[in-house]
């Protein structure tokens, strides 16, 4: 009986340790996995560091900010920063307008880009390669080069400072990052088997009907991807929104959360002067609270729809089959 009670570590040989750490042909080594996990966690931390910083700072009161012993965790949760930032940004109004500014062009983008992508993928016509070439080229070209004449054009048409200046180009497939969306749809519709469409046509469906009834339902992943990305990109666009919709020198009444954040300092100061109750002057916490407020809707959307976001690129077949 005494022989059987060998200590557990006596079984461990040098070879076994080596196998465990370095791995064999079939199993991954423990050492390698440890390194990968450590790296991923470190880099992941770097990624969300600004967000953690933002959240923790936005909840601090002025005393906490000045207290050098408090680094990360505020002594008490101070939500008044959010209230003040929201009031100065005119949060609900800006939120509604942001949704409109991002949502309406997105719908137009989906409609126009799917049509164009389908036209390119399904039909053969002379000059198709040239069209695709121009689409790719227009993606590389910075928007600044066409911006000034477009601005003049809009002001001549009288649609500067209205939502039309975003809707019109996106209806014609020329919205922000429109080329990407056209190419996504193009790539996707090419994978739809032609036989299906031919079968529908034999059954008497026209071109438009076979597009709406056959191709579009099978392109749901591409539709989701384009909707989400277009929404996010329009939401985050501040340069062109300020130029076309908000107005640079003038104020058209349209605004978005991102633009409000851009002018946060002066907005807050003018709010602080007019406010009736006592308002603290601008500080880091309020800045961070404002930033947090302007990304909060997108963050919520991301965490609800994260599966679609993360899988989107896999599904669009942008990598080619």
């Amino acid at each position: 009986m005494a022989r059987a009670t060998t200590k557990w570590y006596q079984n461990i040989t040098k070879d076994k340790v080596r196998k465990l750490l370095m791995g064999t042909k079939d199993t991954e080594g423990l050492l390698k996995m440890l390194v990968i996990y450590a790296l991923l966690i470190c880099i992941g931390f770097i990624y969300i560091y600004p967000i953690i910083y933002m959240i923790s700072n936005s909840l601090m009161s002025l005393d906490d900010l000045l207290d050098s012993s408090i680094n990360w965790i505020p002594s008490s949760l101070n939500f008044s920063n959010y209230a003040q930032a929201a009031a100065s940004m005119d949060f609900w109004k800006s939120l509604g307008q942001s949704i409109l500014i991002a949502g309406v062009p997105t719908l137009c983008n989906v409609v126009s880009c799917s049509l164009i992508g389908y036209g390119l993928a399904r039909f053969e016509f002379p000059g198709k390669k040239i069209v695709i070439g121009i689409i790719i080229f227009s993606f590389i070209l910075p928007s600044q080069i066409t911006m000034i004449p477009t601005y003049v054009l809009y002001s001549n048409m009288g649609i500067l400072g209205t939502l039309w200046s975003f809707v019109l180009p996106s209806l014609l497939g020329m919205g922000i990052n429109g080329p990407i969306f056209i190419l996504i749809f193009y790539q996707f519709f090419r994978q739809v088997p032609k036989v299906l469409i031919e079968a529908a046509q034999i059954d008497g469906a026209g071109y438009l009907k076979s597009f709406i009834r056959i191709s579009l339902p099978s392109a749901v992943p591409a539709l989701i991807t384009v909707t989400l990305f277009s929404f996010v990109w329009y939401w985050n666009e501040s340069y062109l929104t300020e130029m076309y919709v908000h107005g640079v020198m003038t104020d058209s009444g349209w605004t978005s959360l991102v633009i409000q954040l851009d002018n946060f300092q002066q907005n807050y100061n003018s709010y602080a002067q007019t406010a009736t109750n006592a308002v603290t002057s601008i500080n880091e916490s309020i800045n961070m609270a404002g930033t947090m407020l302007s990304i909060l809707p997108l963050l919520l959307m991301y965490f609800v729809l994260q599966r679609y976001f993360v899988e989107s690129i896999d599904r669009t077949g942008i990598t080619g089959e």
């Binding site: 126009s112 049509l115 039909f123 016509f125 066409t146 477009t150 014609l172 020329m174 597009f211």
Partner: peptide, 28 residues
């Protein structure tokens, strides 16, 4: 007929490319 339909499908893009790409490029 297919070629014409294809051109019809991408006609928004052609119009858009004229108004928002070619014209601004030349004008700018």
């Amino acid at each position: 007929r297919e070629a014409i339909t294809g051109l019809l499908f991408i006609s928004p893009w052609i119009v858009g490319a004229c108004i928002f790409l070619a014209y601004p490029l030349i004008t700018s």
